[in-house]
Design a protein around this nucleic acid. Structure first.
Lengths: 146, 146
DNA sequence: GTACGTGCAAATTGTTTGCAGCGTG
DNA sequence: CACGCTGCAAACAATTTGCACGTAC
């Protein structure tokens, strides 16, 4: 079910991508930070600790490639920059974005199957994926506001 | 219910914003294109036909201002640019984004109230707004693919 | 060995800002 | 007539691209 290092390497091979040290480091980084939504710059900073010579462009290219083959999912939280996370289980978690502190957390709730079925039927639109974002005030901020 | 020119002007006054020709032109443009999701550049191109001297920065500033006072809603379809639409009824329509042609259309379906109630209860997260995007292939593209 | 991958720097793109002059209320 | 608003150009920030060199297969 979940992504493993081996499975991802396998995917690269299938798509005729080479397994370079830089790519390996980036993939390991994501495996060690499964729960995070990392921006390109975040990845760059993290990876630089392991491999100081890596270039930012390489990070961008690798993230794009991993998104293309379905390992990562591009997420846009409206900050003017993209974030990346493992694509697994995308259909069953949504994001809670706190408009005060900017923190992004996840919920597992998903009642969208009904909606999808209706849309496919009524609009003739074949749904591949969905993204749901709830904007509001997280518990922490609410507590701080008192 | 729906935005009218008068109501928007009223809102500007309430917020101590002046009613300049540029702002009027931009508001009229949106009223004439209620069904569209316009980017700043789109608005600039449209408005330039009426008022060739307008500056792109003015468009950006006006869109930001209209979003601030709640007339427009900033939408992010992950294209690396923001789009704007009237904010009315935001809770009751969602976006269908075709991954082939990039066309964005709307659906009225909304079953998220249940989900919101559950999230507020279980996570203590107070929801202000939500955005739902469905990615897939629109009817037109499906027909073209045959 | 060769095509793909890399680092670097420069280019692009969307958006923001500083400023002197203009126009609304 | 004051202050907010404008156009212009320059500044910014995230991302992309061109290119000569390096390296996985």
């Amino acid at each position: 079910m979940s992504h493993s290092f081996e499975k991802i390497c396998q995917l690269l091979k299938e798509h005729n991508y080479k397994l370079t040290p830089q790519r390996i480091t980036i993939i390991e980084m994501f495996l060690e930070n499964r729960d995070q939504h990392l921006s390109a710059e975040d990845v760059y900073d993290l990876v630089k600790q392991e491999a100081p010579d890596i270039g930012l462009a390489t990070v961008y290219r690798t993230l794009e490639m991993l998104a293309q083959i379905g390992v990562l999912l591009k997420m846009d939280f409206g900050e003017g920059r993209l974030r990346y996370e493992f694509s697994e289980g995308v259909h069953h978690h949504h994001h809670l974005i706190c408009v005060q502190c900017g923190n992004v957390s996840e919920v597992e709730e998903d009642l969208l199957d009904l909606m999808e079925a209706k849309i496919e039927e009524e609009e003739g639109f074949t749904i591949i994926d969905h993204q749901v974002k709830f904007f509001g005030i997280c518990k922490k901020c609410q507590d701080n506001n008192i």
